[in-house]
């Protein structure tokens, strides 16, 4: 299978800032939109991050769409304020603060270096960083179609 060239391969990486209004407009299509963009090699900066259940949906759908050649998953650094040091009032009311800014990108392009409750350091990998990965893609081509892998085995 020939790997399709994406924006990130030769023309730099596209970074799209997605407003809260756009995300709200997308409604139930939000996860599909994000994943389609990420699979095209774009890094998205979401003004309002995903809720925990949306994040879990993103992980679940991502896992079902990983093809091991051109899409290995997502990197999602973000300030998920829901679980980190809630204020006393928020805890008493059982109300989580709204999700904060989040970055979502393809895992072969975006790497989180360091993250704490206040700072996130992420890196966009260059072609040099991914050299080994791309070399391997060519080798894999001769190993047969994805469908020949077979299903999970009992351990």
């Amino acid at each position: 299978m020939k790997r399709v060239l994406k924006e990130g391969d030769r023309k730099g990486v596209s970074i799209n800032l997605i407003s809260t209004e756009k995300l709200d407009e997308l409604g139930s299509e939000k996860i599909r939109f994000i994943l389609d963009q990420v699979k095209e090699g774009r890094v998205l900066v979401l003004e309002k991050g995903l809720s925990p259940s949306e994040e879990l949906d993103l992980i679940r759908i991502t896992m079902s769409e990983i093809d091991h050649d051109s899409f290995i998953g997502v990197e999602t650094p973000g300030f998920t304020g829901n679980v980190v040091k809630l204020g006393l009032l928020q805890r008493l009311l059982g109300r989580a603060p709204p999700p904060r800014m989040m970055v979502v990108g393809p895992a072969h392009l975006l790497k989180t270096i360091k993250k704490d409750g206040r700072t996130i350091q992420a890196m966009i990998l260059t072609r040099d960083d991914r050299e080994g990965y791309e070399d391997d893609v060519d080798d894999i081509t001769g190993e047969g179609p994805e469908g020949s892998l077979g299903g999970p085995e009992e351990e």
Binding site: T62, I66, I72, V74, E75, G132, Y133, D136, I140, E153
Partner: peptide, 25 residues
Amino acid sequence: ATKIDFHNFVENHGMNKTDARNRAK
């Protein structure tokens, strides 16, 4: 996990590519 790269099994754990791809799947 949010990502699973079969190359990791090959490069860091000495698996052959077929096994690594099976494991990743």
